[in-house]
Design a protein around this nucleic acid. Structure first.
Length: 478
RNA sequence: GGCCCCAUCGUCUAACGGUUAGGACACUACCCUUUCAAGGUAGCGAUACGGGUUCGAAUCCCGUUGGGGUCACCA
C-alpha cells in the first residue's frame, strides 16, 4: 500500500517543536513504505492562505528545521516535486474551481452575510444552544448567482446536512461520532478568493495523493468537515490519525510562554538533532523492547502508528537534557563530539582551534555537560587568564596561602608535565608538609580554575600546561 | 457553556483478563573519588472515584470527577 504523508504548517512564526513532532511520524511512515518497496512520499506543504499572519522567512526556517533533524521532505516548496506548487497561495485557482464545483453540485452555496450580521446570528444561536444558521443557505441557486453576478461580495459555504451524523474513523480512536446538526456551514472560500484551511487542505491532500493524514489532536473537531468535503467531491477518504498534543507542565497545549517551542532555540542551546528526535519519538510512544536510546533508522524499523498512546505527554526539558547528555557520553565518539562542538561554537561566533588541546578539554567535559551551551560556561579558565574566581575558591586560596609559592616552585622544576608525574609530585609535596593530598589539591584547583568544581586535577593540569599552571599559582601566592 | 478527545508513580511510559503493577527522567541515600560530574547500587513513588461484567479487572462496559482540545471569511 502506498503511503503518502505530509505536514502542512503555516508560515506564521518560529519553526515549532510540534511541527517537528508531527513531522517525525509522517516522515517515518513514508520511509517505512519505501523500505517495504512500496511508494512512500513525505510532503512539506505550506499553508499560507492567511495573508494577515504571514511571516516572510518562516517557510525557509521550517525547511531548515526539518533538514537539521534529518526529516527532509521528499517534496516541498524549496525542492519542488511533481505535485507542486507546494504553497497554497500559488494554487488559488484550484480552490476557487473546487468550491464552485461544489456549488454547482449542490454541496455548497454562496453566502452574503456581513461580519456584523454573522456576529448577531452567532449570538442568537449561542443563546439557543444551537449552531449558527446562515440565511443565504435558503436562497435559490438562481437568486444567489444573480447577486454574485451583480458583484456582491460573497463567500462559499459548505452545505452541511441538517440530519444524521458523520463518523470519523480515526485509526487511534475509532469511531468518533458527530451529529450533523452540531456542525455549522463552514466557509470554504473567503470573500477575497482565498480558501479556508478546510477546503485547501482537502483539495491539496487529494491532488497530492496523500493517503494518511497524521496530525495533532486539535484538528479532531474539524475532521467531520473534511470527511463531508471528501464525500461531496466523491473522493475516498485518507486514513486519519490524530496524535496527542505536546503539553506544558500544567498540561495545557505546549506554548511559547511556558516552554521553548522554537526548534531554533534547541539548536542554539546546543542540543543534538539525534537527541531531539529520540526524545520526540518517546512522546506518546515507547520502543517495544523498552529501549530509551535509539536512532531514526531504528525508530522507522519498529514504529507502528497503532502503538501511539493518547494521554497528552508533558514535554520535559529535564529528560531531553539527560538524553542529550547520554548521546554525548554513550552514542557519539569523542572525536564526533569534538567536531560537532567545534562547529557549534563556530556558529556561536567563537573560533577555537580544533586541536589536541581542544580535544583534551572536550574529553574532560563530556561527562560534565548535557548540552553544548554549557561548555564555555564551565571552562573559562582554559581559554583565558581572565577567568572568574568564586567565593568558595577564594576561601580555598586563603587556606593554601602558606604553601602555594613553594608548590609553584616545585611544579616549575618538574622535568615532565603529564598526569603521572604531576600526581606523584603533588602527593610527595603533601606528605612532606604533613598534609592530606586533598588539602593541597583543593587550593591548587582553586588557583588554576577559580572554582572548586572542575575535571580531575591531574588531567586538568596537564591540559593547562606547566607554564600556565605555574604562572597562575605564582599569581595566587602573591 | 455546547461538542469532541483523554485518564497507571511528580514526569515519559510497560502491562494488551491472572505480574510482588516493570523500566526511564527527576528526587533521596550509599559506593567510587582530589572537587564537580559521569558511573554503580538501593530507596521513595501510580492503576482518579463509584458501579457493573467475570472464577479473576490497571486492562471490558456504564456513570462521576478531573484534565485537554475546539467552537473565525486563523491554521
Amino acid at each position: 500500500m502506498p503511503v503518502v504523508t505530509r505536514i502542512a504548517p503555516s508560515p506564521t512564526g518560529d519553526p515549532h517543536v510540534g511541527t517537528a513532532y508531527i513531522g517525525l511520524f509522517n516522515h517515518a511512515l513514508a520511509a517505512q513504505a519505501r523500505h517495504r518497496g512500496e511508494e512512500g512520499r513525505f510532503i512539506l506543504r505550506i499553508e499560507d492562505t492567511d495573508r494577515g499572519r504571514y511571516v516572510a522567512d518562516s517557510e525557509r526556517r521550517i525547511f531548515e528545521m526539518m533538514e537539521w533533524l534529518g526529516l527532509t521532505p521528499d517534496e516541498s516548496p524549496l525542492q519542488g516535486g511533481p505535485h507542486g506548487p507546494y504553497r497554497q497561495s500559488e494554487r488559488l485557482d484550484l480552490y476557487g474551481d473546487a468550491a464552485r464545483q461544489l456549488v454547482a453540485s449542490g454541496h455548497a452555496y454562496y453566502a452574503f452575510e456581513t461580519p456584523e450580521e454573522l456576529a448577531a446570528l452567532r449570538e442568537a444561536a449561542q443563546k439557543e444552544g444551537r449552531v449558527i444558521q446562515v440565511p443565504s443557505r435558503d436562497l435559490t441557486p438562481a437568486q444567489a448567482q444573480a447577486r454574485v453576478d451583480a458583484g456582491e461580495a460573497a463567500v462559499i459555504r459548505l452545505k452541511v446536512p441538517r440530519e444524521g451524523q458523520t463518523v470519523v474513523h480515526d485509526l487511534l480512536r475509532d469511531p468518533i461520532t458527530f451529529q450533523n446538526r452540531e456542525i455549522d456551514d463552514k466557509v470554504l472560500l473567503k470573500a477575497d478568493g482565498y480558501p479556508t484551511y478546510h477546503l485547501a487542505n482537502v483539495v491539496d491532500d487529494r491532488r497530492m495523493g496523500v493517503t494518511h493524514v497524521v496530525r495533532a489532536e486539535e484538528w479532531i473537531p474539524s475532521t467531520p468537515i473534511h470527511v463531508l468535503l471528501y464525500r461531496a467531491f466523491g473522493w475516498p477518504e485518507p486514513v486519519w490519525a490524530h496524535m496527542p498534543l505536546l503539553r506544558n507542565a500544567d498540561r495545557s497545549k505546549i506554548s511559547k510562554r511556558k516552554n521553548p517551542t522554537s526548534v531554533e532555540w534547541y539548536l542554539d542551546q546546543g542540543f543534538l538533532p539525534e537527541a531531539m528526535l529520540n526524545f520526540l519519538a518517546t512522546m506518546g510512544w515507547t520502543h517495544p523492547e523498552g529501549r530509551e536510546i535509539f536512532d531514526l533508522a531504528e525508530f522507522q524499523r519498529v514504529f507502528r502508528l497503532e502503538d501511539v498512546t493518547l494521554g497528552g505527554p508533558v514535554f520535559s526539558l529535564d529528560k531531553l537534557r539527560w538524553m542529550n547528555g547520554k548521546y554525548l557520553r554513550e552514542v557519539l565518539s569523542e572525536e564526533e563530539v569534538a567536531g560537532r562542538l567545534h562547529a557549534y561554537l563556530a556558529g556561536q561566533g567563537h573560533s577555537l582551534p580544533l586541536d589536541d588541546s581542544f580535544r583534551a578539554v572536550v574529553r574532560m567535559m563530556i561527562p560534565r555537560m548535557d548540552v553544548f551551551s554549557e561548555f564555555l560556561e564551565k571552562t573559562p579558565y582554559f581559554w583565558s587568564e581572565e577567568y572568574p574566581v568564586t567565593e568558595k575558591a577564594q576561601k580555598l586560596l586563603e587556606e593554601g596561602r602558606p604553601f602555594l609559592a613553594d608548590l609553584a616552585a616545585r611544579l616549575k622544576t618538574l622535568p615532565a608535565f603529564d598526569q603521572t608525574v604531576i600526581e606523584a609530585a603533588l602527593r610527595a609535596f603533601a606528605e612532606e608538609r604533613g598534609l592530606k593530598p586533598g588539602k593541597v589539591m583543593q587550593p591548587l584547583r582553586a588557583a588554576v580554575a577559580g572554582t572548586s568544581e572542575s575535571p580531575g586535577l591531574f588531567e586538568m593540569l596537564e591540559a593547562l600546561g606547566q607554564e600556565r599552571v605555574v604562572a597562575r599559582l605564582e599569581r595566587a601566592a602573591r
